Computed example of a mutant assay.
Amino acid sequence: MSTFSHLNAGGEANMVDVSYKAVTQREAIAEGYIYVSPSVIEQISDATIAKGDVFAVARIAGIQGAKRCSDLIPLCHPLALSKVDINFDIDSNDNRIKATCYCKLSGQTGVEMEALTGVNIALLTLFDMCKAIDPTMHIEGVRVLEKIGGKTGHWTHSQEANDAHHG
């Protein structure tokens, strides 16, 4: 039986002690998609969304989300992020927008949760800003693509792993 790192000897929720870990550079990239109507794609591309520049607002929201991860996820360590980068790519063929979040720091624990929180908040902000045009939008495919640092070193999400989870 495996030991859960977030439970103490009494089985109670517990924040993991990372004070013994070396400070190393840690990085993570997460991605996710919001599926939208062609009208949303068109209005974003033409900058005619009534609420303004949706990518600028969603980018700031995603950065704020990554910075506030420990306030949202129980037992998550508060981290001093040195870099958060949010990017968007419009895929008009599949009527979707891909959001990516890159997080970096020098610290004792990884930044996967911050990257996942950042990408989710960016996608939710896109939803909020476009819901009047298309209330049927949906978010899918949120995942960690890559992480660097810590005991596992450099890890990337492979297609084989994706197939194993969805096959």
Rank of each mutant, 00 (worst) to 15 (best):
C130W: 08
H166F: 13
N87L: 14
M113N: 02
G52A: 10
A132E: 15
H157Y: 14
A30M: 07
A50M: 12
D17N: 10
L105F: 15
N14V: 03
T3N: 03
E112K: 12
M1K: 05
Y20L: 09
I29N: 12
A22S: 02
A161H: 12
P38C: 04
P74V: 04
R68H: 15
A50C: 06
K147E: 00
I34Y: 07
G153P: 07
V36H: 00
G32P: 07
G65S: 05
S82I: 07
G167E: 05
A47W: 00
E12W: 08
K67M: 12
I97L: 01
S92F: 01
E12L: 15
V111E: 08
A28P: 09
D134M: 10
T100V: 07
I133H: 13
I86N: 05
D91A: 01
T156G: 00
V16W: 09
H166Q: 12
A80W: 07
D46G: 08
R96V: 00
S45D: 06
D71Y: 04
K21I: 05
E112L: 09
S92W: 10
V40K: 10
I148C: 10
E146M: 15
F4S: 01
S19Y: 03
A161V: 09
F127Y: 13
C103Y: 09
G167M: 07
S158W: 08
I41R: 02
H166L: 08
L116I: 11
Q159R: 13
R143Q: 13
T152L: 14
N120E: 12
C69L: 02
T152P: 01
L7C: 03
E42Y: 13
I49L: 13
M1F: 01
S92T: 00
A61D: 01
E112G: 13
D91V: 07
A30V: 02
K104D: 09
R59W: 05
G52H: 03
Q64W: 02
S70R: 02
T48D: 01
Q159C: 06
L123W: 11
I34S: 01
L124T: 04
V54L: 09
G52E: 09
H154L: 13
C101Y: 04
H165W: 06
S106V: 09
N8M: 01
C103T: 15
S106L: 13
G10R: 10
V111A: 09
